[in-house]
């Protein structure tokens, strides 16, 4: 169980020598990737290039096959990671608050009910704790998923296209919320939305090619989290779209 000292000084994420083959295709051949401690690192790239595969590799959901996956001191990340998937993965048979407490429920840990309610209030869902998830809108469901991620209280948070299923306005609100709630943790997020990467990323990598390589892209100097309509963000977005298309 990670303690608050770990959250105060979260680890960086390092991937070295990653080799992944899916069927006959070589997804990664000696891939290197790193995300700085306490920062948001975005991964952009076309569909099928291996963004989710990289994230799953970091999460330990795929066999490492000799690759090093750990922090800057050479330690493994197991037990340090909270996962937020593209789907909200809320369980329809549990209440909203019980969904937030899912990790504790699975590990058989008692308590945490007050914390779950506090987190729900923090993501703007006060008073919905005892409702069923099917009474919530798509944006509200993602808020619950965010609260569930925060409930795990892990220093590293991995997000796989977390806000891709909601409308653009809701998405911007969720991005602000995520930036506020997850600030200070090491966050690695995958997105296909250049604007999302530019808004939330302290660093952004474009994953491209087969086997894929990660290439950092220059970011505008606006204050983080960057406003969606900042001139630097808009210019960089056009740049990224050109790069992704070529």
């Amino acid at each position: 169980m990670p303690d608050s000292a770990l959250i105060a000084a979260p680890p960086a994420v390092r991937v070295r020598g990653a080799h992944v083959r899916l069927g006959r295709a070589t997804v990664f051949d000696d891939l290197a990737f790193s995300a700085e401690a306490g920062r948001f690192t975005g991964i952009l790239g076309p569909s099928g290039v291996g963004k989710t595969t990289l994230l799953k590799l970091i999460a330990g959901l795929l066999p490492a096959d000799g690759a090093f996956i750990g922090d800057e001191r050479g330690n493994r990340l197991s037990g340090c990671i909270a996962w937020m998937a593209q789907k909200d993965l809320l369980l329809p048979w549990l209440t909203v608050a019980e969904n937030v407490r899912l990790g504790a429920r699975l590990r058989g840990e008692p308590g945490g009910r007050d914390k779950a309610r506090a987190l729900l209030a923090a993501v703007g869902l006060e008073g919905r704790a005892d409702d069923r998830p099917d009474t919530l809108s798509g944006g509200q469901r993602q808020r619950v998923a965010l609260a569930r991620t925060l409930m795990e209280d892990r220093p590293v948070v991995l997000m796989d296209e977390p806000f891709s299923a909601v409308d653009p306005l809701t998405r911007i609100g969720l991005q602000d919320l995520a930036a506020r709630m997850l600030a200070g943790r090491t966050v690695v997020f995958v997105t296909h939305d250049p604007l999302e990467a530019l808004r939330l990323g302290h660093a952004v990598f474009v994953l491209s090619g087969a086997p894929a390589t990660a290439r950092p892209i220059p970011l505008p100097a606006d204050a983080w989290p960057r406003a969606a309509d900042a001139p630097g963000v808009l210019a960089a977005q056009a740049e990224i779209l050109r790069a992704l298309a070529s």
Binding site: K56, G60, A85, L102, G103, L106, R107
Partner: peptide, 18 residues
């Protein structure tokens, strides 16, 4: 749902609890 099982793994859930 395999994504749900992935989530449970990152939560260190024992197989019986899953």
């Amino acid at each position: 749902d395999p994504d749900l099982l992935d989530l449970a793994r990152t939560m260190n859930a024992p197989p019986l609890a899953v």
